[in-house]
Design a binder for these strands. Structure first.
Length: 571
RNA sequence: UGCCCGAUGGUGUAAUUGGCAACACGUCUGACUCUGGAUCAGAAGAGCCCAGGUUCGAGCCCUGGUCGGGCAACCA
């Protein structure tokens, strides 16, 4: 009963998921020679999203865990929707997630010749025929889930006639849509997919790889199982909606291949749903087309490109995929879990910096006018290797508006008239007075500092509850910060029968802050750089940045207990 | 009136394959803290969709329901 080889390296005897259980059984029984070969088979007609990431992690993960291989295969059987642009973005995303496919990417279109040959073989066997009927007629004859279909009048054509017609379809002798090749199975099958499914349609369209070579294209159902077979796939992992297709795939292979020593096995799992977002390509496309977001890589999008721009790390997405598990029941995963996964990773790796996103000026009335001193700050307390840096400190500073209240409640550990607070890494200051502008907003806060309390070296180190982050005014760099929130206000925006998801858009999903003050070092930051803005959250440099004009995307906020406490107090 | 899946704390996933339900996130306490972060310690929360049956014993097996999802593109 011992699993002879390939025990998972990460030890931790975590329970197996149902797919791992199947794979281990298959290996034990030496099915397909005990090999494990999976594949990730996207259609290049859109950008990958977090749901695909689940599938990618699963497919590549199983191959990795069991010492097998995983192919990247583009299911490009519909030339009307597919483009090279998508092929490239998909490859980029898979690599970025940290996976390497076996050899070169595969394409279903590489098999068009083989598929054609196989179709002819099925015709010769008498299990495929050309149907001259229009689409509507075929669809009508298919019946409904509860009513059997009826047979096409062309179903019993001679093999010769079928061969001839199919060849002429291929040669482009017939207009689009005028004829199809169908499998001859069973029009009364309780499984709709077995009711003489279409195998080939006439489509005089240029294909992104085969150009104008083909006038007919195979349907996904006829290409997919065969592609798996041709690549030696052992475990074909896909989402639940293909469960009812499986008998068809098996039927095709059994008709085509007599030697039963090797067969791919399809295993279906439930697709990922994330709360407060939509996951279908169609809906995501709608968001892009209607300019609700700024593109496929808008940081609010659940696309891989969007998450990347938002500041998510590959490791965090892999950890997320790992945590959500795989099963067959419908699920809606709390976005909070995704957020937890980034925080966990970013907490370990991101340098802490000082940034005030909603600044208010503080003047230290007893601090020398022209003096600037260097304050030494630790880069990342979670990572001793990360060292420290110097940040200027002076008489005029910025702190966060939120960190000052004219009339603060008891549990507010920050600044207010007469209150004391520590400036991170620097001194304890005391608020003596403040000044309001015409609108009644706090304009300037006047404080005194206690030179004896300098962080570390000062003789006085009083216990102070509140510590604030700050930025020295004269050296501060002005930055733009983009605060993102969930795109939808409903937990399951696509789950309403009578309402469109777009009715649940969150009007505040993007908040632009143009006058943020950040420490000098951040003037020369690079796109993609990640930081923790002390006490605020994790931020990532957006490609829109320029030297001295950095733009930061908020990846995720820090957990905020004060927000909870203050909310409770308000009732 | 058809066929195929599924049903375990708020969410997701487990249960050595019949022996009184575990883990993660979340929630709540408390400790610690120059990030109200992190970390650490602890707690609450399901009696496993329902009803029968098999069994000494069932979340795991059987039967019948209920509820949820999928299936009727010349899409994938």
């Amino acid at each position: 009963m011992s699993h002879t080889t390939d025990e998972p390296v990460d030890s931790e005897k975590r329970a197996l998921n149902f797919i791992e259980t199947i794979i281990e059984e298959d290996k034990l029984n030496m099915k397909n020679g005990g090999r494990v070969h999976t594949r990730f088979p996207p259609e290049p007609n859109g950008y990958l999203h977090i749901g695909h990431a689940k599938s990618i992690c699963l497919n590549f993960g199983m191959a990795e865990k069991y010492g097998g291989k995983c192919n990247l295969r583009f299911d490009d059987t519909n030339p009307e929707k597919e483009e090279t642009e998508y092929v490239e973005s998909i490859m980029e995303d898979v690599k970025w997630l940290g996976f390497q496919w076996d050899k070169e990417p595969y394409y279903a279109s590489d098999y068009f010749d083989q598929l054609y040959e196989w179709a002819v073989k099925l015709i010769k066997k008498g299990v495929a025929y050309v149907d001259d009927q229009p689409q509507e007629m075929i669809s009508q004859q298919r019946g409904t889930p509860t009513r059997p279909g009826t047979e096409s009048p062309f179903r019993n054509r001679s093999v010769d006639e079928n061969i001839d017609l199919f060849a002429r379809m291929k040669n482009g002798e017939f207009p689009n849509g005028s004829r199809v090749l169908r499998a001859r199975i069973d029009m009364t099958s309780p499984n709709m997919h077995m009711r003489d499914p279409v195998m080939y349609r006439i489509l005089q369209a240029d294909h992104h790889r085969t150009g104008d070579k083909w006038k007919i294209y195979p349907m996904y159902d006829f290409a997919h199982g065969e592609s798996d077979f041709l690549e030696g796939i052992t475990h074909s992992l896909c989402t639940l909606e293909f469960e009812v297709h499986r008998p068809l795939y098996d039927w095709f292979i059994d008709q085509l291949i007599d030697d039963k020593s090797y067969r791919p096995r399809q295993i279906e799992f439930a697709r990922l749903n994330l709360s407060y977002t939509v996951m279908s390509k169609r809906k995501l496309l709608e968001l892009v087309k209607n300019n609700i977001v700024k593109g496929w890589d808008d940081p609010r999008m659940p696309t891989i490109a969007g998450l990347r721009r938002r500041g998510y790390t590959p490791a965090s997405i892999r950890a997320f995929a790992d945590r959500i598990g795989v099963a067959k029941r419908d699920n809606v995963i709390d976005v909070g879990l995704l957020e937890f996964s980034v925080r966990e990773d970013l907490n370990k790796i991101s340098p802490r910096v000082m940034a005030v996103i909603d600044p208010v000026k503080v003047i230290l009335t007893n601090y020398p006018d022209d003096k600037l001193e260097d304050i030494e700050l630790v880069n990342n307390p979670e990572d001793p290797e990360s060292g420290s840096r110097k940040v200027p400190f002076g008489r005029e500073l910025f702190i966060e508006q939120d960190d000052f209240m004219v009339d603060p409640p008891n549990k507010y550990f920050r600044l207010g008239p007469g209150r004391e607070v520590r400036l991170k890494g620097a001194y304890v200051i005391r608020c003596e007075s403040f000044e309001l502008d015409e609108k009644g907003a706090v304009k300037t806060i006047y404080c005194t500092y206690d030179p004896e309390t300098k962080s570390g070296s000062g003789p006085k180190q009083p216990k102070i509850k509140g510590t604030l982050h700050w930025v020295e005014a004269s050296s501060a760099v002005t930055a733009e910060v983009r605060l993102y929130d969930r795109l939808f206000m409903d937990e399951d925006p696509a789950g309403h029968k009578e309402k469109d998801a777009l009715e649940f858009m969150n009007p505040d999903s993007l908040k632009l802050l143009n006058n943020c003050k950040v420490e000098p070092m951040l003037a020369t930051v690079k796109s993609g750089d990640k930081f923790q803005f002390q006490r605020i959250g994790y931020f990532c440099v957006d490609p829109d940045s320029a030297t001295n004009k950095p733009v930061f995307n908020r990846t995720v906020s820090l957990k905020d207990n004060w927000a909870k406490v203050s909310q409770k107090e308000q009732g």
